[in-house]
Design a protein around this nucleic acid. Structure first.
Length: 298
DNA sequence: TACTCGTGGAA
DNA sequence: TTTCCAAGAGT
């Protein structure tokens, strides 16, 4: 399984316990294998933004087989990236990943940059993804705060069931305070605490009975009080522009070439909303209007 | 800051 | 059936 530095480099017993738990319980994911390239890691991080691991796995495998390097993807049209993205959701991520591949090819000699700042400058790469790639692809010491890590820290350290709506200074300081000094150990801790959140310390029905740090969990020790913060964001979907865009783009994705507008008109009843959604797809660069009035992927 | 941006599995 | 939400980013 995973290897790491000696325990003496870590101060907090919670960190040590989670590292040991990860040694025994880590999932074998393609982008975690020793032979995984930084490009494989970067692609996985794009795909995993708001999409579950099980749905990413097959698309990630096909993506890396077709485009083994950033330059290979950069040589394709952005539309092919959108098509290969399939039904992972949020297709603008496909566009941004293509844009990142172009930037890597043109500005970094085709090699995924290792520095946080260079990564952050890539399209579609925010604080989380830049830190994650620096840590997981390059073994750097970075504070990696994703939804899993934030939830684990909220429960074990802060004693609340859920973290704040957006990342706070306190969370960042807490993450920094727990980070092992040794870079390889820090990188392993980052993926380990994320894995704990994904497999045990889940958002609903956490498996506290199987949690290695339940005895140290502030939330559990205080009786697992119910969440009393502001209501978490509700994601409505049915009838939204988002659903309409999804229907329209599915038609373009499944067609080999351009499609007549009449065909797009059949997948959404409300004409006003349909026109607005189609215009927004074009505006976003996810669709192109041909001179003959037909639509296609860019 | 708050909102938008897809999709589908689980309970 | 409805609700929740999953390795966020951009504006």
């Amino acid at each position: 399984m995973t290897t790491r530095a000696t325990p003496s480099t870590t101060a907090d017993p919670l960190v040590e316990t989670v590292l040991h738990w990860y040694d025994e319980n880590a999932r074998d994911l393609p982008w975690r294998r020793p032979e995984a390239s930084p490009w494989s890691v970067l692609v996985s991080e794009f795909m995993l933004q708001q999409t579950p691991v099980v749905r990413v796995l097959p698309v990630h495998e096909a993506w890396l087989a077709r485009w083994p390097t950033p330059a290979a993807l950069a040589a394709e049209s952005s539309g092919e990236a959108v098509r290969a993205w399939g039904r992972l959701g949020y297709p603008r991520r496909a566009l941004r990943l293509h844009g990142a591949a172009v930037a890597i090819t043109e500005q970094h000699g085709g090699e995924v940059p290792a520095s946080y700042d260079d990564l952050l400058a890539l399209p579609g790469v925010g604080d989380y993804t830049a830190a994650a790639v620096a840590a997981f692809a390059f073994g750097q010491r970075q504070v990696v705060l994703d939804t899993n890590v934030r939830r684990v820290l909220a429960r074990t350290m802060t004693g609340t069931e859920f973290p704040p709506r957006s990342v706070t200074r306190a969370e960042r300081d807490l993450g920094a305070s727990l980070l092992p000094q040794d870079a390889p150990t820090a990188a392993t801790w980052s993926v380990a605490v994320m894995e704990l959140g994904a497999l045990v310390c889940t958002a609903d029905r956490p498996r506290c009975g199987g949690c290695p740090v339940v005895a140290r969990c502030a939330w559990q020790q205080s009786g697992a009080p119910a969440y009393d913060g502001p209501p978490r964001q509700v994601q409505t979907y049915a009838g939204t522009d988002r659903q309409c865009r999804g229907r329209l783009l599915a038609v373009l994705r499944d067609a080999p070439g351009a499609v007549p507008k009449a065909r797009l008109d059949t997948v959404w009843e409300n004409a006003e909303q349909r026109e607005r959604a189609l215009a927004s797809l074009v505006e976003d660069g996810l669709a192109t209007l041909d001179a003959d009035g037909r639509y296609r992927l860019p």
